[in-house]
């Protein structure tokens, strides 16, 4: 699923590992989300959106998947 995770992460100068630690998941999981290979669970999607201060709809584009 298309998403803004990489954009928002790099805007904040965060490494994938740092975001992964903040979310309690592995770096590979963050990498897979950014590369649209993995669609996160609703709790993780909400946590990511909350972390970056955006809505889930703003962060994830289900129309473009």
């Amino acid at each position: 699923m298309k998403n803004l995770v990489r954009t928002l992460r790099t805007e904040r100068n965060l490494a994938q590992g740092q975001l992964a630690d903040a979310m309690g998941v592995s770096r590979q999981t963050i990498n897979s989300i950014e590369n649209e290979r993995y669609t996160p669970s609703l709790p993780l999607a909400m946590a990511l959106a909350r972390y970056f201060g955006v809505t889930v709809e703003e962060m994830f584009d289900d129309q473009g998947c």
């Binding site: 592995s26 590979q28 897979s32």
Partner: peptide
Amino acid sequence: SETVRGLTTRRDERF
């Protein structure tokens, strides 16, 4: 190995 770690000691939702 992140993969081995993910499947053994640090399993998240994707793993």
